[in-house]
Design a protein around this nucleic acid. Structure first.
Length: 291
DNA sequence: TCGCCCCGCTTGTTGTAGGA
DNA sequence: TCCTACAACAAGCGGGGCGA
């Protein structure tokens, strides 16, 4: 399985697409597209994969995903149970860089927006205050027509461009294969890893996904990502462990096993080396933060 | 009981050489 | 140029045990 290219066609009378989605769960597919994607989560929670970032998502989150950046919104397991009664709702806007004609972003007044779009190559998540402002503006955009719709969208971009409290998601090291000689093997590896990190993955197995032997695979993976495969896998697992610690009410050993680690000592060690503190300290820190 | 550390064994990564 | 094979080294893993 590799990241799927999703193609959209704007209606002839619109320069960008806005939608309000309501499904039992989001499209559970690792994909990318040439449009920027602005998403506000109205309802539902789960795990958000953007480039090589893996983080929990919940209602109230606002994310801007850059063009060609692979991503996937994976709802929690209960969303996939029949008759769960749960729904995943979001407002989205898909737009291309030249949505208002070529050259618009080059004028001086648009520099902050241009810079924000540049930053979105790694995926951006905005603070709650900005998210709330943007949500209302996105609704207005969706409900408006013609010229007013375009003006509201520009106002929305202006709000986002002036937000100082944002976080970049994917690392600069993440390179989508479409940018590098069209080698889709790395894409297959990302996809395989995101779908299987909760269980034991052997080097032989993942090398097989890329149609290489383990030695060649190690070299190939490092060439593209500037990190070795086990480090990449551990980062995904620790990201998922953080989500479980904050959301699930599981104890630390359960979180370790649920995140794909077979051994608690290794889980503790990896957690500390990546996050800088032990799992228990992380939990205490965030529980105190909630009170 | 849980979280963490230590130690020995296993597995993965890297450097080098050579073949297609 | 890309891939494989091999050997040496590094990192990861699992079991056991200790302290709070």
């Amino acid at each position: 399985m590799k990241a799927k290219l999703l193609e959209r066609r704007s209606p002839f009378d619109k320069s960008f697409i806005s939608d309000v989605h309501s499904y039992p769960h989001f499209l559970n597919v690792w994909h990318y597209h040439p449009e920027f994607e602005l998403v506000y989560i109205i309802q539902s929670k789960g795990t958000r994969f953007i480039g090589d970032s893996i983080k929990p998502f919940q209602e109230g989150d606002l994310v801007l995903i850059g063009e060609e950046l692979p991503h996937m919104w994976q709802n929690d397991p209960e969303y996939f149970q029949k008759e769960s009664g749960l729904t995943a709702e979001a407002i989205t806007i898909h737009f291309r860089k030249d949505f208002a004609g070529s050259g618009l972003l080059d004028i001086p007044e648009m520099i902050p927006i241009q810079q924000m779009l540049e930053r979105s190559k790694q995926g951006l998540v905005f603070d709650r205050e900005t998210a709330l402002l943007a949500k209302n503006k996105m609704k207005e955009v969706h409900e408006s027509e013609a010229f007013a719709r375009l003006m509201l969208f520009l106002e929305l971009l202006y709000i986002l461009a002036n937000c100082k409290n944002f976080q970049q998601l994917s690392t600069k090291g993440f390179v989508h294969p479409s940018e590098k000689n069209g080698d889709l093997r790395i894409d297959k590896v990302y996809s395989f890893t995101y779908n299987n990190f909760r269980r034991n993955i052997t080097l032989d197995e993942v090398a097989d996904v890329a149609n290489l032997n383990p030695t060649a695979f190690c070299r190939f993976f490092k060439k593209y990502t500037k990190k070795n495969y086990s480090k990449f896998l551990n980062e995904i697992r620790i990201g998922y462990a953080c989500k479980l610690l904050l959301e699930e009410g599981l104890n630390i050993s359960e979180v370790g096993y649920e995140s794909g680690f077979n051994n608690l000592s290794n889980f503790n060690r990896q957690f500390k080396s990546l996050i800088g503190i032990s799992p228990s300290q992380y939990l205490n820190k965030h529980q105190r933060g909630k009170k």
